[in-house]
Amino acid sequence: MVDFLAAAGAGAAAAPPAWLTWLPIIGMVLIFWFLIIRPQMKRQKEHQAKVSGLKKGDQVVTAGGLVGKIAKVDDTYVEIDLAQGVRVKAIKHTIGDVIPPGGSPAND
């Protein structure tokens, strides 16, 4: 009789299936993918497209906040006219944004 009760108690406390224990972890990975990783990859692709499409005469904002007009584009560097007679050489990937024609920066 005692063996029957022990067997019945062991059967009632059986562990859940293994896939069920992994379900919360898989859910968290999916949440991270759709809320963090995927949008970051999309922004990175957009920035890469902007940088590869830079041309002379585009008005840009650098990552440091400098606003100027592109004077020369190279494979790695960009020369930017900040003011009359003031030209800086910047790494292409430090360009933060391209200002559309007719648009003005927020601080003007």
Rank of each mutant, 00 (worst) to 15 (best):
I70Y: 00
G57W: 00
I37R: 11
Q48S: 15
V67Y: 00
V78K: 00
T62R: 04
F34S: 10
L35W: 08
V51T: 09
V51C: 11
K45D: 14
K89C: 01
Q59R: 14
G65D: 01
K55A: 15
F32L: 11
Q44E: 14
K89L: 08
G57F: 05
G85R: 10
K72T: 07
L54M: 10
K69G: 05
G64F: 05
V88A: 11
K56M: 07
V61P: 00
V73Y: 01
E79P: 01
R87I: 12
D74E: 14
A63Y: 01
A71L: 03
I36Y: 12
L66Y: 03
G68I: 04
K45Q: 15
V86D: 15
T76S: 15
V86G: 11
V78H: 01
F34N: 10
L54W: 10
G53R: 13
G85D: 08
K55Y: 09
K45Y: 09
A71Q: 06
G68R: 02
R43F: 09
G68S: 01
A90Q: 07
V61A: 10
V78Q: 01
F32E: 05
P39D: 03
D81F: 02
A90S: 12
L82M: 00
V51Q: 10
F34Y: 08
Q84K: 14
F34D: 09
K69F: 06
I70C: 04
G64S: 09
A83W: 05
A63Q: 08
T62V: 06
V88I: 15
R38Y: 11
K56V: 12
T62I: 04
D81W: 02
K56R: 05
D74Y: 03
A71V: 04
